[in-house]
Design a protein around this nucleic acid. Sequence first.
RNA 1: GGUCGCUUAGCUCAGCUGGUAGAGCGCCACGUUCACAUCGUGGAUGUCGCAGGUUCAAGUCCUGCAGCGACCACCA
Length: 918
Amino acid sequence: MSEELASRLDPQAIEPARYAKWQEGGYFHVPSSRVLEDAADPYVIVIPPPNVTAVLHMGHGLNTTIQDVLIRWRRMQGAAALWVPGTDHAGIATQNVVERELAAKGCMRDDLGRDRFVTAIWNHVHETGGAILEQLKAIGASCDWDRTRFTLDDELSRAVREVFVHLHERGLVYRGEYIINWCPRCLTALSNEEAEGQETQGSLWHLRYPLPEAANSAARAASEAGADAIGQLDDGRWYLTVSTTRPETMLGDTGVAVNPKDERYAPLVGCDVELPLTGRVIPIVADAHVDPDFGSGMVKVTPAHDPNDFDIANRTGLEVLNVMTPEASMSENAPEVFRGMDRLDARKAVLVALGEQGLVAGEDAYTRSVPHCYRCGTVVEPRLSLQWFVKMKPLAEPALRASQDGTITFTPSHWQRVYEHWMENIRDWCISRQLWWGHRIPVWYCACGEEIVSREDPTDCPKCGSAELEQDPDVLDTWFSSQLWPFSVFGWPEKTPDVEAFYPGNAMVTAPEILFFWVARMIMMGYEFFGEPPFTEVYLHGTVRDMKGRKMSKSLGNGIDPLEVVNTFGADAMRYTLVSQAAVGTDISLDHEDVEAAFANGRNFANKIWNAGRFALLSVGDAPVKPLSEVEPDLALEDRWILSRLRDASQNATRGLERYRLHDVAESLYHFFWGEVCDWYLEWVKARLADDGDASSREAARSTLVTVLDESFRLLHPIMPFVTAELWSRLPWPEGKERPEDLIIASWPDGADRYEDEDAERDFAALRELIVEVRRLRKEYGVAEGERIRIHLSGADAALVDTVSAHLPALERLARVNGVEQGGSSGIGAHAVLGGGRELFVPLEGVIDLERERSRLGEQIARLQAHGEATAKKLQNENFVSRAPEDVVQKERDKLVQLEQQANTLQQKLNELGGGKS
RNA sequence: GGUCGCUUAGCUCAGCUGGUAGAGCGCCACGUUCACAUCGUGGAUGUCGCAGGUUCAAGUCCUGCAGCGACCACCA
C-alpha cells in the first residue's frame, strides 16, 4: 500500500522531485541515433531563446507551457520529440544592462575600453545569465538540457560567420552609406523593425525661406499663378514656405524641392533660395517624390537626416550635409550658435531665431508616428552613415512562396497575410551595430585599401602582404544570429548527425511581436541554406495582459511572477490556467491584483485530480488488478459508459492538439475528468468498490477505474505533468501488462483501441437525466435529505423502467430513490418532462405546495407550447421542408410530436390538480 | 493613409464547417455519513455593439456605421 496521501495537493512536495526524476531518467534527451538508427519520427521544436539576462515573466510561462504540451504529447506518441533550449546574447539589451550597472559605479564603457567591457559583460552573463533556463524547469519544461545553446557559443559563432561570408559572396551583403535609424542613446544603428513607431502629438511648422532678388520675377510669377506659399516679407523680399515637424533639420537643408508637374512653382525651379540662420544659399529642384497637395507643395530637403530627402539628393545632385553628432546634438556643420545643442533644444532655438526674423509662418498641431528605439525608448534619428546591409528581396522570394503555396501554415491563419505583406514589401536589412557585445563583423581592412571578408581571421593582406589589418569594429544585429538558430544549434555548418536528424523541425511557437524580427528571417535562412524551411507550422500565441488590457511589464508593475505562482499554486495549476485561457488568436488576461483568483481554477482542478486519484488508490487497494479484457463480461452499465466516454475524450484531445486548439483540449479534459469521471463514475461505483460487495462486480469496477485513471492521466499529462505522473506512478497495474517507467513516456491513448458503446451512452444519459431531475424536484419541493421517494416513469421508452430498476441501488444513493414504477402518474406530486418523450412523476403527498405546483405546471406548459408553435411554424414553411437536409427536418418533426405530447400530459396533470386551463 | 482584429451573462472570455447560446470566476439557496469546502447538490443571469442584406434558418456569411485595439506605411 502506498503511503498516506495528503488530502490537499501540495505541489512543492511532488513537483521538484518528479522533475529531478525525469532528468535523471534522461527522458528529455533525444540523441540523433533515435532518428538515424532507430528510425523514430523526429518532432522538433527549437525554443525562442530568451535573452540571456532575462527574468522569467508570464509571457515566457505561456510560451513554455504551449511548447511543453506539444513536446510531451508527441513524445508520448512515440516520436523522437526534441525541444532544444538556449539563450540569446541579445546585443543591445544585454549591453545596456551592463552599461547601467557600470554607470551606477560612475563608469562608462569607454573608460574600460572594448576588451575589458566585453569581459565585464561575459562576467555578468556567467554570473546571472541563463538563470531563466533554470526557471523554465520549475514550470516543467521538458527541454533537452544537454543541448542548451547560447548564440555566442563558438559553434554558433562559426555559423554566423559562414552565413555572413556566404551572403557576401552571393552579393547579398553589402556596405554602403545610407540613411539608417540611429539611436542617439545606444549610439548604434537599428534595423527598420527595431525602430518602433509611436503615435506622437507634435507640430507641423511652416517656415519661410527668403528668395534672392534674382528670383523676384519668378516668385512674382509663381505668386500670380496662385501659389499661396509664395509671398513677400515686410521688407519686400519674396519668400517661399516649407513645412517640417523637425525644424532643427533645416540647418542641414541643401535644397528645396517641388514636383516637376507642379505648374505653380515651375518658374522657380533652378532658382536659389536663402537658407536662414546659415548664410547658405541652396537651389530649388524638381523631384517627382514631392506631393503637390501636401502643405505648400514645397519640401525642404535635408539629405543627411531624412531617407526621402536622401533619395531626392541622389536624384538631383544636391549636397549632403550632416549637422548632427551621433548623440543627436548639433554638430560643427551647424551654425556656431547652435553647436552642441541637443536636437530638441536646437529645435526651440531655431524656431525662436526664425521667429525673430519673421520667418515662422505658423504652427499646426500634428500627430504622426515617431520611431523609438525598441530597447531604450529614445526617439530614433534618421542618420546618414556607413553600414552593412543584407539585400533581402532574393531571400524573401522562396519564403514568400512557402506561405502562398501552403508549405508553411500559420495559426491563427490571419498572420499569413501579415507575413506575406511584409515579405512582399521587404526592405534591405541594416545588420551592423555600433556595439561591442555580439558577433563582430568578419571583415578586415588593410591600409592598402583591401577589404577582406573571411571565415577565418586573416593574418595578412592577400594584396599587399601587410599584417596591419583592422577588423571592422561593428558587431552584427543580434537577430542575425537568431535567424540561424534552427540549424546553428545542431552544429551547422558542419555536417553533423544532428543536422541530418533534426533539420528541418516541425513547429515554431512564439509571440506575434517577433514575426518579422525572427520567424520570417529564420524561414529565409532555411531556404537559403537548406532549400527548405526550418519548420512548417507557425503557432503564434497571444500576449499576457492585466485586467485593463495592458501588457504585463516590469515598468508598469502589473506583472505576475510565474515562480511565485508555481510556489503557491503549483506548475500544474499555472499551466492549466494558461492553456485553458489561450484560445487560438486571443490574448490572456490575468488579474495581477488577485493572483489567487487568477489561478484558482487551475489549482482547484489539480487538487481535484489529486483527490480523485487519492480516493481511487484507497478504494482499489494494492491487490493486483485484472486486465479489462478479463472482466469484460462483468462490466456494468456505468463501466461501459465511462469507457465509451474515455474514448471520446481521447479522440477529442488528439484532434484538438493536432489543430493547436489547446484551450479546447484543456477544457474538454476538465469537463470529462471532473464532470464525468469524478461527479458520476466515481460516485456511482463507490458501493461496488467497497469490500463487502459482489466480488466479480468489484473486480470489474477496479479494472475499469484503473483503466480510466490510467488513460485520463495520460491525456492530462501534457498539460498537467506533475500531479498526473505522481498519481500514475502509484496506480496498481493490471497483471501481465508492461508498465512504462514513467508516465512521461507512456503511450498516448488515441482512443482507437476502444469501441464506442452507444447503448451504454444512451442508457446512462437517461439515468443521469433522471437523477438530476429527481434532485431538482426534491430541492424545489423541499423534500428532506433523508426521505426516500418512489418515482413514476412513463413515456415512449418503456425499457427505461427496467434499466432504472436495475440500478436502484445507485439511484438510492444519488437521488434517494427507493422504487420505480411505470406510468401511474396520478395523484399529487412533482412532475418533470424529460427528453425523449419521457416523463417523471414523483408522488409527494403531503409535501407538495399545490398552488405552487399549479403555477409551475402552467409556466412549463406555456413554454412547451411556445416552443411547439415555433416548431410547427417552421414545419409549415414549404421552403424549410423542401430545402433543409432531411435529418434536420425529421428532427424538427420529432421535436414537435414530443412537445405536443409533453404539453398534453402536463395539461392533464394540471387538470387533475384542479388548475384551470393555461 | 493601408491592412487586420475585437464588440456574447456582473467580470475575463469560448463558440471550428450557419439549425432558437456556453465555460471559469463571481452571485443565491441548501449541505460537512469517511476522495476533495481548493468540495457537493440545486439555482438565477444575455433584445450575442447598431442598421441593413443573403438564407427555409445568422452570434455564426455579406455590406455599412459606431466604439476599442493591433500592425504596416518615405507625405515633408
